[in-house]
Amino acid sequence: MMGELLEVKHLSKSFAGIQAVNDISFSINRGELVSLIGPNGAGKSTCFNMLNGQIKPDKGSVRINGRETVGMSPDKIWKLGVGRTFQITATFYSMTVLENVRIALINDAQKLYSFFARTEKLYHEEAMNLLEQVGIVDQRDRLCGILAYGDLKRVELAVALANNPGLLLMDEPTAGMSPKERVALMALTHEIVKTKNIAALFTEHDMDVVFNHASRIMVLARGSLIASGMPDEIKNNQMVQEIYLGASFT
């Protein structure tokens, strides 16, 4: 039987005595596009890094497709079908956009350890398809080291999609983009989630993006999950308004 795609229980992490993430539990199902919001320093990135294996939680459990992943390294977690984009983009600066995607595809096809194949002949079409999906085909031969920030976010998304992940973890996927681009990118994400029936968890500062695209919203404050629900419920939640959204909330 199919359980939840992602199931998090009692996840906690502290750094040098400061509780960054405090006993949070939640789960996400296929077809959901869930947003994790909260003020700076609320523990969002720490949470993402625990889900993705960069940071080992102090306690708690993370199950992806029913497999416990606490203690696994990021490359093992990737094998379970998890795609990731970072808050501060991480791409291969010495490679072109196309090559960035290509290397992910090659690894997905388990051809990374071939020592004599000509890389430029591998998975050209698949890579082009992904670039087309995220809309940076025209940038394909530019080096990531000189790319604009918004474009890098797109590259990251294309790279994250390379292994047909069941779960997408996106840390501020639209940072550095114009409002118009944000809408387009989130619409794309939304569509991918629906058509491929996968789940996505993202953090975002732009509340328009969050309320327009998220099918569910979780609010993190000082390491604790203080609310979770449909966009409308969150909008009307008194506590959220006080603690996080404050006066600027519209």
Binding site: W78, A90, V159
Partner: peptide, 19 residues
């Protein structure tokens, strides 16, 4: 080769490589 690209990938960003 793909391996060489992987090697450069690890140099450019070990974070991304692992991910």
């Amino acid at each position: 080769s793909p391996f060489g690209f992987a090697l450069r990938a690890c140099r450019d960003s070990s974070l991304r490589s692992r991910a």
